Amino acid sequence: MKLLQALFFPPEQPGGVSSMIPYLQERFHSSRWEMEMFWLPKRIRNKGHEDPIFHTFDWREYEESPIVAKYLQTYRDYLWWTRLRIQKPYDLIHSHHPIAGMAMKAVFPEVPLIQTVHSSYERELILNGRIKEGGLEHRFLVSLYRELEYISDRLLTVSNSFKAYMSPYVNTPESIGVIHNGFDDKRFKPVPHENAVPQLITVCRLVPAKGLDTLLQACAELKRKGYDYVLHIIGDGPSRQELEEMAKELDIYQETIFYGYTLHPEEFMPFFDIFVLPSRAEAFGSVFAEAALSSLALVGTDVGGIAEQIEDGVNGLLVPAEDPMALSVALEKVISDPLYRYELARTASDKAKNQYSLARSVNELKKMYLKFQPQIES
């Protein structure tokens, strides 16, 4: 069976897709399966000129927005690149981004399409202050869910909470499937260690949606109470300068290390103690599963896929979003009690290995893919 995994970003980019899809190939490497990946290189800009075709709404109603216009141009570029680079047929295409799925269906209308929605671009834009809820851009982006439902043979997402989020925007929400991201536990090797000072780590894109302003405020409260710690912030983004200035203003800059973008944070994550990310929204939150497999104690917000991964007080701690004091109290618990921290980390690791293993995700995908296997004519 010839499969194509259609991505948007290159597979080395951070995020839930890159945590799973590149590692599928070796699991599908056999005489029965042939899998390839495809994505839009960053260098491809303003090459496409073919107007998109949407079946469920009129895109021209939204094109006056610069954000929508850029999105549509990116779609045209992906369409142009697909027509240029792919000639041979596939038995099944599994897309991991709306633009990829729409372009693939336009080029290969007869090939079955599975579409996984990994995150919400519109929620990220709203939380990052780029668009207004209910505005032109928001209405365009949520219209894409019904379009994806129309063109897909199977519509999937990565958490039950995100399925609930998508449900008002499609005709048959009950048909949305959920397959969690899977993680190759061979990549994660917990390291026994004793840090004299508790080491906190977060890994994310530095944007308002990730709530790092809340984290810095919580850490300032920890320092005010006399707790020692070091906060390691791995990632880059438009908020970096603002966050560095905030750390200075809160007098925690000496306790905070900004690393910038790092390609494989899982290689040194096991040497830390506590993973914390107070996101304002999260479709799944792959980095929590990665931290759990690295045997770190987890502290997150009670939103989206984070709340599905963490059972408060059992395999991590959950706090409300945008609540620095609650986050500070949770961090205080795991900083002050190493044994409690260890128990949370151990339980989190056990759950991640059981529920978010790559093997489990691969088995679910194989069962689904086989339903679309071409019938051999006798």
Rank of each mutant, 00 (worst) to 15 (best):
E174A: 06
D184K: 13
I179Y: 12
C219T: 00
L212K: 02
D273F: 07
S161M: 07
Y227L: 15
P168W: 14
I233G: 02
M246R: 15
Y253I: 10
L216A: 06
M166T: 04
P192H: 11
S159V: 01
L200H: 09
P192R: 12
H232A: 13
C219W: 01
T256S: 06
P198I: 11
I201L: 02
P238A: 15
Q254E: 14
E244K: 14
P208I: 02
S161P: 00
G211E: 02
F271E: 07
P173W: 14
N195C: 09
L250S: 02
D251R: 08
E245V: 06
I176N: 03
F258D: 05
I257S: 07
A164I: 13
T202V: 06
P192S: 08
Q254H: 11
T262N: 06
V197L: 07
T214C: 15
A164Q: 14
G226I: 00
T172F: 15
A218T: 08
A247R: 10
V197M: 12
K210D: 02
I179H: 13
S161F: 05
E255K: 13
H264C: 05
R224I: 12
Q254C: 06
L206E: 04
R205Y: 00
G177Y: 06
E242R: 14
L216D: 02
L263Q: 15
P198Y: 12
T262A: 12
E242C: 07
K210E: 03
F188K: 10
G235N: 04
Y169H: 05
F162Y: 07
K163L: 11
G235T: 01
